[in-house]
Amino acid sequence: MKRPRGTRFGAVLLDLDGCLVDSNDAHASAWSDALAKFGRDVPASGVRPHIGKGGKELLRDFVTPAEHALLADAMGAVQTELFMARFSREVRPFPGAAAAVRAMRRAGILVVLASSAQKDVIRRSLALLRLDGVLTGQTSAQDVEKTKPFDDIFSLAIDRFDLAPRRPVAIGDTPYDVAAAHQIGVPCMAMRSGGFPLRTLRSADHLFAGVAEAWEKGRHLFA
């Protein structure tokens, strides 16, 4: 997708986990517990670097292809159930992140939540953030065949909400967000709030501590 260089970003493809809510560790723990229920002993620290991929893509590193074909859906369902059980106890919004999203909208920037998370998780997170009605729209893992690090989520969001003419930028916290955005020529702002090592985010076009800082210090980058 060819885009004019030097113009400001008029639309945002926004990731959820690790950007708006501090949930990556809870996701890793829930995956570890879910895999244990299927007989696999994988510590949360082993899963943590893979958080940010969609569930099916994440599982490819931990199960055989045959297991993946038959059990990935069940494993994902168990992980979602365990994550939701942890949600109110462990998941917190990042300070200033939701306010920054509201400010983007007030400035006329279209903000689409482009997450690989499950719909239930997205719904609950948006309620926590009080962002219902603020976003232009959203996509979830259920909307696409392939989740991050593939570009499908971002591509769908761009097509569905006609974002291409507004020069969209992806805001994510993982190397999988960066990879997915770059596959389709979309610049990516990486947030360090997700806890990924700096070296894994070096290919991002911009680097910020979090969404609040991206809006505050990177305001000149937006339309």
């Binding site: 002993d41 055989t64 038959l70 059990l71 369902a77």
Partner: peptide, 17 residues
């Protein structure tokens, strides 16, 4: 159709792939 975790007797401990 697999939808949930198996009962404990069907869980064999496996190494990470």
């Amino acid at each position: 159709q697999f939808r949930r975790a198996p009962s404990p007797q069907w869980r064999k401990k496996r190494k990470r792939v």
